[in-house]
Design a protein around this nucleic acid. Structure first.
Lengths: 124, 124
DNA sequence: TGCACGTATGAGCAGATGTGCACATGATGG
DNA sequence: CCATCATGTGCACATCTGCTCATACGTGCA
């Protein structure tokens, strides 16, 4: 773990130019792990698109099939399918097949929580 | 509002191929406004980067100057400054000048809330 | 005053992202 | 079986993102 080693003063500018070294050391000590941060960024990234937010919003009420989602979101069924694949890979939605139809629903209630919390925030 | 009108069957494929028309109508009726969704997507977008998440994490503890943030986040001071500009424009951080130094802090506690909630989610 | 320092900003580049298009897949019905 | 339908997916392309590099701006110190 090179990040936890003591500051070197060879060529790393940002390592030597510490104005408040104690604060920096404390922040470095208490921070979340890299994998957690990267997973968190991925989760927020999934919610950083109006299209996917519409999907999450619709699925937070009831399960829907792809063509219904396309009608609600207002984009092509192909685009919805692409986004649903991403949401599936991120374990945000699950789906069940019924004949030719695929019904999607939210896998994780945390996402709906984040959606509502964020919406309350932007509504102030 | 063309979306609120009854389904036309001229050439809009996704408007006529409604499998569950009542569910789609209900979803279209209850959904958030476009500006709200777009602002929500922007907020999540601000949190969709490990670099900015590190910044938010560090600033949720104490205010810090740019070079300290660069040391905590682990990127160049230029990169931090660029991200801080975005965060300023989104009213997520505020800053005060003290001599040559610029001290940044979180403007809005909602962002720290979202950060913690999301982190609890990825930690399961 | 001159110069180093901390920060801000514009240009530009490599990689990621979102969508449409064309086509594949699998199920259903005649 | 074969046509059709709902959905999935590879490819292409335009756009966006986040970073580096170079440079400018404002402050404080010698």
């Amino acid at each position: 773990m090179p990040e936890r080693s003591r500051p070197l003063n060879d060529d790393a500018r940002c390592e030597v130019r510490l104005v408040h070294e104690d604060a920096v050391q404390a922040a470095l000590r208490d921070r979340a792990r890299d994998e957690e941060l990267s997973g968190l960024a991925d989760t927020f990234q999934m919610l950083a698109s109006p299209t996917r937010l519409r999907i999450v919003e619709a699925l937070s009420r009831r399960e829907l099939c792809v063509c219904d989602l396309a009608a609600v979101v207002g984009v092509s069924e192909s685009a919805v399918s692409h986004q649903l694949r991403l949401l599936r890979q991120m374990r945000i939605v699950r789906y069940r097949k019924e004949g030719r139809m695929a019904y999607y629903a939210l896998e994780d209630h945390h996402v709906a929580d984040l959606f509502r919390l964020g919406l309350n925030h932007v509504r102030e």
